[in-house]
Design a protein around this nucleic acid. Structure first.
Length: 728
DNA sequence: AGCACGCCGACT
DNA sequence: GTCGGCGTGCTC
């Protein structure tokens, strides 16, 4: 009798055994439907065996093998097993969590998708010149693409699920015909956009990365903002694609996908490019994922979770903006997509390129130690200069609604020259606090240890941590004073101030509140490009990777609060953010200028930003980290606990620390502390740091510890382990 | 996680 | 005398 061991979406560290007559169908990686408790659950077969240690009478049969997708490939399963061990997360949750949501359920009748290609028919050629598709833009575009092919027999694979839909409609009308895709074929039919000439530095980087395309090597592409890192990626991708390989490109945020996607498509039009991120509709995400798995998609462009895409012919991994904290998942399985990208590259024995203007200290340290290779881009690709950075002191200066006269003057100057300016303030809403001037009371969130943020124009208080909204109180809850005042500045308040100061300026605010609607951000980018906007106000959404040709001034407000943070990574992250946002200015012929408004003009971090000297500042930070015994010189894990009462969470952590004493070898177990955001969504949180100079010792410790912790009974406490934590 | 089983307080 | 609280244990 054939036994299969199945991963199921339950928080236990085990697989579940079933017997299975259809041994041929239930191979490793197959998705199956199985009885579990009193219902049916979707699982993935991870092992096939002839024996089971589970009591015979308990074994139940697999209900059926779900054949709408191919079994997960062995290498993906190996990655998921590694994740489960390394991040100490239950295997079932890891495996099921890696599937697109569509495939976590037993789909009713989702038909098996095969890679398809489409070619034009004579009727389609005739229809293309008529107005038949005037009101079907998607189909019109799809038809236009077929028309571009060199001959009528040439077929193209759809680039997107949407295009596939349009092409199928064309088939229904008889204007196109469907053919089987030959996956390995290189389609040169869409004339690719010519690659621009490279600078000497870019060329050197490309050469270095291409020397051994079939060997593992992690490379840092360390290039200043505007130095053309993307162009380097594209040049390294070209031969990989030509040889039939797939490329996985990870980017920090979906806000960046549309532009990058357009650029990649323009260059590699003949190859199918798919995106994978949370903004996609469930069906499209599943379809794109399936195209990656079948090999039909040659380039996968995605955010963090795309690291779990099955890619049978993966030949190159790129992690753009590798320093970005959003590559680290901060709930559930707390993985680092950047670290896993390196693991995956090693697994496939292929190169991985980590790109950044401000590499994480972990990566930079890896280069200094010789573990990673590196290539530098020290000049901007188009010859423009890095912006001049000026520190604007607010000491003894009278501010107008939070803005220094020097900042206002600089904006006015751009107004006169019809250049664009950007005001960067990493705080949305009108004011971060509403306060009673008489007694100091300020409304806080009932579920979180955070102040409520005042929003306008429809006045409301909003908690930025749990999303809770409530009306603005008419009077102080403590003393009854009706004169409550907004304190501090957010994007909305700065927007109002700039509208008042520059009544004729066209001001655009860009933050999560204004870009929530689908397509809003795309429209905004277009209007910025058209120069319909003079003044931009934005949060970090605006800091990353964008290219605004008309922008010559960036003003940074309110950066100070990260200067004296308790998080040892705050300086690294602020430095990176300032370098990134500064990099938005003067990327073309206009010389750029950056003003950083601060109450601490002498702070070494600002001095370092001013000189654009990443290496010097990184060296200082690394020396501090080594001195203080922090990463990358130490390896860390955090045991996080949450409960309705902080005492329960703390008691659990104290017990956990005590229980670990007997086997804590080469590791330091620190005292439990309440989390920096102690109360979140109505739950109290605390944590305990464990550190070791040896990664192996740390993991030996965590292995034993999780066994002990899972064994104990901890009523009312939820806990998990965060390996390589970012915020402690 | 979801669900059942099981043992102690307030209710028709 | 029952309804239901959530503590405990199990799911192949």
């Amino acid at each position: 009798m054939s036994i299969v061991r199945v991963a199921l979406d339950v928080p236990v560290p085990t697989l579940f055994d079933y017997h299975c007559e259809d041994a041929g169908g239930a191979q490793i990686g197959a998705r199956v439907l199985v009885p579990f408790g009193r219902k049916q659950a979707v699982g993935v077969v991870l092992e096939v065996s002839t024996h089971s240690t589970v009591d015979r009478t308990k074994l139940r049969p697999v209900t059926r093998v779900l054949e709408d997708i191919e079994p997960l490939p062995d290498d993906l399963i190996a990655l998921l097993r590694f994740c489960s061990e390394y991040y100490h997360h239950p295997i079932g949750e890891v495996v099921i969590g890696a599937l697109p949501t569509r495939y976590r359920r037993a789909g009713a009748a989702s038909s098996r998708r095969r890679p398809r290609s489409f070619a034009i028919t004579p009727a389609g050629r005739a229809a293309s010149s008529s107005s038949a598709l005037a009101r079907r833009p998607a189909q019109r575009r799809a038809l236009a693409r077929l028309l571009q092919q060199p001959d009528d027999a040439a077929s193209v694979p759809p680039n997107t699920a949407a295009e596939q839909r349009a092409l199928k409609q064309l088939v229904v009308h008889g204007w196109a015909k469907e053919t089987a895709t030959e996956v390995a074929r290189t389609d040169t039919s869409t004339p690719p956009e010519p690659a621009p000439p490279l600078t000497a530095e870019q060329l050197a980087a490309v050469r270095a990365f291409c020397t051994q395309p079939k060997k593992f090597r992690a490379w840092l592409l360390h290039g200043i903002t505007g130095s053309g890192k993307t162009e380097v990626y594209l040049h390294v991708m070209a031969p990989v694609l030509a040889a039939g390989g797939q490329v996985l490109m990870l980017i920090p945020e979906i806000g960046l996908t549309p532009q990058l996607e357009a650029r990649v498509r323009a260059r590699f039009g003949g190859h199918s490019v798919v995106t994978l991120h949370s903004a996609l509709a469930e069906g499209e995400r599943a379809a794109n994922w399936a195209m990656a798995q079948s090999g039909a998609a040659r380039i996968v462009l995605g955010t963090r979770s795309a690291i779990f895409t099955p890619l049978p012919r993966l030949a190159l991994v790129v992690v753009d903006e590798e320093h970005d904290p959003s590559f680290k998942q901060i709930e559930g399985m707390r993985y680092s997509a950047r670290d896993l990208a390196i693991w995956r590259a090693r697994q496939y024995d292929i190169p991985v390129i980590l790109g950044s203007a401000t590499p994480s200290l972990e990566t930079y340290h890896g280069v200094l130690k010789g573990r990673y290779g590196s290539a530098r881009l020290t000049a901007r690709a188009n010859g423009s200069l890095l912006p001049r950075i000026r520190i604007v002191s607010t000491v003894g200066v009278k501010l107008m609604e939070g803005l220094a006269p020097q900042v206002l003057a600089a904006i006015e100057q751009r107004r006169q020259r019809s250049e664009q300016a950007l005001v960067f303030i990493n705080r949305r809403g009108y004011a971060p606090v509403l306060v009673c001037p008489a007694c100091g009371w300020a409304p806080g969130c009932h579920r979180c240890s955070a102040r409520m943020v005042l929003h306008k124009p429809r006045p409301a208080l909003s908690c930025h941590h749990c999303g809770h909204d409530e009306p603005v109180p008419v009077a102080c809850a403590d003393c009854g004073n009706v004169d409550l005042r907004p304190l501090g500045y957010g994007t909305q308040r700065i927007e109002a101030a700039l509208n008042a100061a520059f009544p004729t300026a066209r001001v655009l605010r860009i933050d999560r509140d204004t870009t929530r609607k689908r397509g809003a951000w795309t429209d905004m980018r277009l209007s910025i490009d058209r120069r319909d906007v003079d003044l931009l106000i934005g949060t970090q959404l605006l800091a990353k990777g964008h290219d605004f040709p008309g922008l010559s001034l960036v003003c940074v407000l309110n950066a100070d609060r990260s200067l004296y943070s308790t998080d040892f990574r705050a300086a690294e992250q602020l430095f990176a953010q300032l370098m990134q946002v500064a990099g938005r200015a003067g990327r073309r012929e206009l010389p750029g200028e950056v003003l950083i408004q601060t109450a601490f003009p002498q702070h070494p971090l600002y001095r370092a930003v001013q000189t654009h000297d990443y290496d010097a500042y990184a060296a200082t930070l690394l020396a501090e980290r080594e001195q203080a015994g922090f990463p990358p010189f130490m390896f860390q894990a955090v045991l996080r606990a949450e409960a309705l009462r902080i005492e329960d969470a703390m008691a659990f952590l104290r017990t956990a620390a005590l229980a670990s004493a007997s086997f804590a070898e080469l590791v330091t177990v620190f005292d439990p502390t309440p989390a920096s955001m102690q109360r979140l969504k109505g739950r109290e949180r605390a944590q305990l740091l464990v550190q070791s100079a040896s990664r192996a010792a740390l993991h030996r410790f965590l292995d034993r510890w999780t066994l002990v912790l899972r064994d104990g009974k901890h009523a009312r406490v939820r806990w998990d382990i965060d390996v390589d934590p970012l915020g402690i």
